[in-house]
Amino acid sequence: MKHILLSLAFAAPALAETCPDVPDYSDELSSLIEAARAAPDEQAGRPISDQMWQVWLRAPDAAAQEVLDRGMRQRNNFDLTGAVATFDQLVTYCPDYAEGYNQRAFSNFLGGNFEAALTDLDAALALSPRHVAAQSGRALTLMNLGRRAEARLQLLAAVENNPWLSERGLLAKGAALGPNGEDI
């Protein structure tokens, strides 16, 4: 057991005492949101969504990027416990980096820990209010918590910022977050 703990300690990069300031990407994201809104169809809008992800996944420094990438690999390999622990390191190191919270929320969501996911999504959105992925993740989390009305409002806000989200189908008539009843 001692050998396993030692190898784990050396497998992770050493993090500096403090994370550098998180760069302000708000102008870049605002431009991407405007481009997504102006896109004439999904074929034109999806690459813009991908560009948004490229912005969110830019960690403040190389050490934070390695931790982020490791946590995402763990999650992709269904090691949700390991991923959450890795994202714990990231949010401790870079508490102002919204994507650390968003990724930990996604790992918790996949593990069915919706309350923890919601807490992290609220933190991510406090740091980056127009983080469309956190908005849609929050909508899905609220939906899984049975808070349908809040989930619908949150997803409407996300779709306002990016009308090409795949989750937009949940807002259709007859869908999980679709309108109640008929309009007169």
Score class of each variant (00 low, 15 high):
residue 138 R to I: 00
residue 158 A to K: 00
residue 176 A to I: 12
residue 150 E to S: 13
residue 117 A to Q: 04
residue 79 D to T: 05
residue 62 A to V: 14
residue 123 A to N: 10
residue 133 A to M: 03
residue 24 D to E: 09
residue 70 R to K: 15
residue 92 T to E: 15
residue 103 Q to Y: 08
residue 55 V to S: 05
residue 136 S to Y: 00
residue 122 D to Q: 06
residue 29 L to K: 01
residue 41 D to S: 13
residue 182 E to A: 05
residue 123 A to P: 14
residue 72 M to G: 07
residue 32 L to Y: 03
residue 18 T to G: 03
residue 167 E to N: 12
residue 140 L to C: 03
residue 85 A to W: 05
residue 126 A to M: 04
residue 59 A to K: 00
residue 16 A to P: 02
residue 120 D to W: 04
residue 181 G to A: 15
residue 150 E to A: 09
residue 181 G to R: 15
residue 169 G to P: 06
residue 140 L to S: 09
residue 16 A to H: 12
residue 124 A to F: 03
residue 142 L to Y: 09
residue 49 S to C: 02
residue 24 D to P: 05
residue 54 Q to S: 13
residue 84 V to C: 05
residue 77 N to C: 12
residue 4 I to F: 10
residue 42 E to W: 10
residue 172 A to C: 03
residue 59 A to G: 10
residue 20 P to S: 06
residue 10 F to A: 07
residue 178 G to N: 09
residue 15 L to T: 10
residue 20 P to F: 13
residue 53 W to G: 11
residue 153 L to M: 13
residue 78 F to W: 05
residue 32 L to T: 02
residue 76 N to I: 01
residue 56 W to R: 12
residue 163 P to M: 02
residue 120 D to G: 05
residue 111 G to A: 11
residue 150 E to G: 07
residue 50 D to T: 12
residue 175 A to H: 13
residue 157 A to S: 15
residue 12 A to R: 01
residue 58 R to L: 11
residue 124 A to M: 08
residue 173 K to T: 11
residue 134 A to M: 05
residue 18 T to H: 11
residue 124 A to P: 15
residue 96 D to V: 09
residue 117 A to R: 04
residue 61 D to N: 10
residue 7 S to V: 06
residue 137 G to Y: 01
residue 35 A to L: 02
residue 44 A to Q: 10
residue 3 H to D: 15
residue 119 T to C: 08
residue 161 N to W: 00
residue 31 S to Y: 07
residue 143 M to Q: 13
residue 36 A to N: 00
residue 145 L to Y: 06
residue 101 Y to I: 08
residue 144 N to C: 05
residue 130 R to D: 15
residue 95 P to H: 00
residue 31 S to I: 08
residue 71 G to E: 14
residue 98 A to C: 15
residue 9 A to S: 09
residue 50 D to N: 11
residue 136 S to C: 02
residue 177 L to F: 06
residue 106 F to W: 03
residue 36 A to K: 03
residue 95 P to V: 01
residue 118 L to R: 13
residue 95 P to C: 01
residue 166 S to L: 12
residue 184 I to R: 08
residue 142 L to R: 14
residue 136 S to R: 01
residue 134 A to T: 07
residue 144 N to R: 12
residue 140 L to M: 13
residue 68 L to D: 00
residue 183 D to Q: 14
residue 37 R to F: 04
residue 8 L to D: 12
residue 38 A to N: 15
residue 51 Q to E: 12
residue 139 A to G: 03
residue 75 R to M: 10
residue 164 W to G: 02
residue 64 A to W: 07
residue 82 G to V: 00
residue 35 A to N: 08
residue 104 R to Y: 08
residue 183 D to I: 13
residue 115 E to V: 14
residue 59 A to D: 00
residue 103 Q to E: 04
residue 135 Q to P: 04
residue 171 L to E: 07
residue 60 P to R: 01
residue 50 D to W: 13
residue 72 M to L: 15
residue 36 A to W: 00
residue 134 A to C: 09
residue 56 W to E: 01
residue 37 R to G: 12
residue 19 C to Y: 01
residue 108 N to W: 08
residue 142 L to M: 08
residue 173 K to G: 11
residue 144 N to W: 02
residue 78 F to T: 14
residue 16 A to K: 14
residue 139 A to P: 01
residue 74 Q to E: 14
residue 151 A to H: 15
residue 179 P to E: 01
residue 1 M to F: 05
residue 120 D to L: 06
residue 23 P to A: 11
residue 163 P to T: 07
residue 54 Q to T: 15
